[in-house]
Design a protein around this nucleic acid. Structure first.
Lengths: 111, 111
DNA sequence: GCTTACGGTAAGTCATGACTTACGCAACTG
DNA sequence: CAGTTGCGTAAGTCATGACTTACCGTAAGC
């Protein structure tokens, strides 16, 4: 329901295969719910619920258009997630390099 | 259990707050399970299970060291995930630009 | 006005997964 | 060779979330 961070909401949203399928179908542009559900193996209400989760995570934009609602991937939605992964990546590399340096020193204490 | 793609396994692994806490504690370098569990609000077996999930997702490296097992963030583990997000990001931007262009054309068909 | 498409919400079912305690096994330590 | 430490696994409980059908608004078309 409510998540501690935006990162958590986005990761949880992306972890579901149906929701990733929805995003995949939106890669080419906005779609209404009926078109979205037509290409998915689940019912339309299920798609609505997934769209809710994706919207709450900031990954989708909704634009009401007459009778329908167009859903589109939010540009910038995954920015925070990318930044999180980049930091994790950097720290992991630094820690790995540090551990390797330390291991090398223990193997040959002096040059 | 078994996931369709490595992306799915990594996203599922990262979606859990306890597992992200484990990764956070490994940012500075490798740790054995007992040290890892000492700073977390869950039992040690729970930590072991989370470590299994993270390892299966390719996010951790294990190096047996005598009696203990050192866990470390796998350098390169999040590479696929970063690539996935980058593609999603690029496609979303392209679709957004395309939609904006189309909307502008409909608003003012000729210059 | 009435009817039909579109889509969100309610309520209920069922599977999954996060956690616990209890146990088993390997490796240091006296 | 005991006893202890470190850690994985088994078994069971409980909450969550993904899905279904049924229902209710709202906008378009006759």
């Amino acid at each position: 329901m409510t998540y501690a961070t935006a990162i958590e909401a986005q990761l949880t949203a992306l972890a579901d295969p149906t929701r990733r399928a929805i995003l995949d179908r939106l890669r080419d542009g906005p779609l209404p719910v009926c078109d979205l559900a037509a290409g998915l193996p689940v019912s339309r209400p299920a798609v609505s619920q997934h769209l809710r989760v994706l919207s709450d995570a900031g990954l989708l934009l909704v634009t009401p258009l007459g009778n329908r609602r167009l859903y589109a991937i939010a540009p910038g939605g995954v920015q925070e997630l990318r930044a999180y992964l980049d930091r994790l990546w950097d720290d992991a590399l630094a820690a790995f390099a540090s551990a390797a340096r330390q291991a090398a020193q223990q193997q040959m204490p002096r040059e």
